[in-house]
Design a protein around this nucleic acid. Structure first.
Lengths: 249, 249
DNA sequence: TTAATAGTGTCTTTCAGACAATATTAT
DNA sequence: ATAATATTGTCTGAAAGACACTATTAA
């Protein structure tokens, strides 16, 4: 039997029923605090609970499914600007039997990083969606609390050795804005002077626009210079996080 | 309708047929070279091609499925030693429509690191399995070449900031053996003296057994001291890879 | 004896982090 | 004027990498 004959006679129904979903950990920074996009579930199971936005995968790539879910839950449309600047990457998959009471569901989780997005409007399959500060997130449906925790770990780690922080700010930004991103994600203040020098010393992290902001901050100070994201994909040397417990045992 | 009523009336067959598989990138070091476990497919599709070991997920966790596939393809049994020392972690998932000609298949890929394992014996659903040096791997079935590439990237990166290298050696090892792991995975020689001092200076990476090897190397030299893996889960400071192109653009 | 290896010492350069100084701007 | 901020300078200590040296052992 050659491969063609085999495929023609192949019966896909011979496998156990498994569903595949994508769930998105969408992060943004508002008022200097890290927020995550949550929805309130309108349907069973976990009706009334908060959850990560997500849904079943259709005839599309996993990346496309994640972007589609994000667009649906935020009410933003691809091609209209805001969504096109979102950084999207796969986080990991979750598939314990019993994580969804309906049936076996494997969820491919994604991480999304965006500059401050507008308040979402309810999508079709969510009773509501909203940005919640990550340190105020209580119980979540399914195993979404673990997914969120993994997503935050990944985000915190990636700030160290990639230029990911630039995904949280606009196309032009000041060093202080970049520092605010690190402070919000890591949850600790950074020394302004050392941070400034360090960012400028990493090749390809940021590049000067030659311009300065039209106006200084609300509490005075010189007009800061403006920068854009550079072309580095890895930071070398990295911006290491201030000494957490050495070598987590 | 409450949640119980909903679940009782729920019909899982209402979803499009999707299959979920696990594929394993199993790495080991033999004769100082990094090898990957491959199988020769006996069944369509891609009959006769080489592929990563893997198969459909049953009623088990994804981790368990990966370990089971690894056991089946190597002929090793859990609980008998060798397999219990294998380090297993999820890599990422692959789900492009069309990556499997039979139907929509989402594959959750795993990375496995093991000390030198015996030659595998053929599993039930593989015509054969064998260790292949990673730099001699040619075409692979499905999108497994990309999966392998991602796995190698991950392995190379994790050597830098985790004690992963100790998963490639036995329970007691010499600094030179550890250095050989780094050399094999990174594909470049490391300075023996600096490596030695560096490894010992990272807290929790290795701990001395107090013993020395009964015999020196084949080409002379003093009897090296023996070490075990320490309790660190992250290396701090990290063992950075020798200057690849700065900040891969 | 020879050659290779284990382990240590030293020096230079780079970088992180603490601290200080100066200039600029909103209020 | 005052206070806060942007940016740059200086200093110390840690760490990476180059190189050298000694002691030990197989062949």
């Amino acid at each position: 039997m050659d491969e063609r004959t085999f495929l023609e006679g192949y019966d896909p129904a011979g496998f156990p029923a498994v569903a595949v979903t994508v769930d998105v950990v969408a992060l943004t920074i508002r008022d200097g605090r890290l927020h995550v996009l949550l929805v309130e579930r309108g349907a069973h199971p976990f009706a009334g609970w908060r959850a990560l936005p997500g849904g079943f995968v259709r005839d599309e790539t996993l990346d496309a499914a994640a972007l589609r879910e994000l667009a649906e839950e935020t009410g933003l449309r691809p091609g209209e600007g805001a969504l096109d600047r979102v950084h999207l990457e796969q986080l990991r998959s979750y598939g314990d039997p019993g994580r969804d009471p309906r049936m076996r569901v494997i969820s491919v989780a994604y991480l999304a990083f965006a500059p401050s997005l507008p308040d979402p409007r309810p999508g079709s399959d969510a009773a509501g969606a909203f940005w919640v500060p990550v340190d105020e997130v209580a119980e979540l449906a399914f195993d979404h609390a673990a997914v969120l925790a993994d997503g935050l770990d990944r985000a915190r780690a990636k700030l160290e050795y990639t230029p990911l922080a630039t995904a949280f700010v606009g196309p032009e930004f000041t060093i202080a804005e970049l520092r605010a991103v690190y402070a919000a994600v890591w949850g600790e203040e950074l020394h302004a002077g050392n941070f400034h020098r360090k960012v400028l010393s990493v090749p390809g992290f940021v590049e000067s626009t030659g311009e300065t902001a039209p106006r200084a901050g609300e509490r005075g100070g010189p007009k800061p210079r403006l920068y854009r994201a550079g072309d580095a994909r890895l930071l070398h040397p990295a911006l290491l996080r201030p000494a957490r417990e050495d070598g987590i045992r």
